[in-house]
Amino acid sequence: MDWLTYLPSLAQGALVTAWITLASIAIGAALAFAAGIARVEGGRAVSTLALCYTEVFRGTSLLVQLFWLYYALPLVGLSFDPVTTGIVGLSLHVGAYGSEIVRGALNAVPVAQREAARALNFGRVHTLMRICLPQAIVEMMPAFGNLAIETLKLSSLVSLISIADLTFRAQSIRNITLDSATVYTLTLVGYFLMSLVLMLAMRLIERMVRRGAAFPRAAHA
């Protein structure tokens, strides 16, 4: 069976894919909160800046961005290795889409909650950190779960800027063996399994967040 001989190389690629995906999700989430909060709570200048960031990175294609960064970063003296470029590109992408999730969830917190906080004389930061975010974050989790899967899938694009991820390894093996059906089936299954693991992980995180936000499990009147 040839396909067994492909596995070590594909597994190495899968590790690179996993690393790039996880790093991008982590950095992207931080960006998402920063931009999302800036959109809702920031002054005019700050929220406009955040809006521009969101629109530009949501409005131009990720693959175009990756190529652009690939050629542009060295010009500004940052001779990034492709992996960094890939993570920067994906993170900016996750941040832009994630900021919409954060913004939506913050806006979905009932106005009455803000009014109650105001009546108790809470400051803006306290209202955001203790009243709005804890309630909003629970609502964000399913959407962030989808975004995480999306990130894993989009990470395959970094193979096109010469990063040896799972897709890149598949291409290499196929070019040597011409055994397309086997190689790509294995690759698709590999991504599918990674998606399932990621989905499971996001569920666990969602449960932790729900408990962290201390919502009671069952309500009774």
């Binding site: 899967i149 899938k153 395959s156 694009l157 196929r174 397309s180 790509y184 698709l188 991504y191």
Partner: peptide, 20 residues
């Protein structure tokens, strides 16, 4: 399965496997 796997790999699959 379609939703959880990358477009790029699906594209390669169709592009290289179908002719076989």
């Amino acid at each position: 399965f379609l939703r959880d796997t990358p477009l790029l790999v699906q594209l390669f699959f169709l592009y290289y496997v179908l002719p076989d």
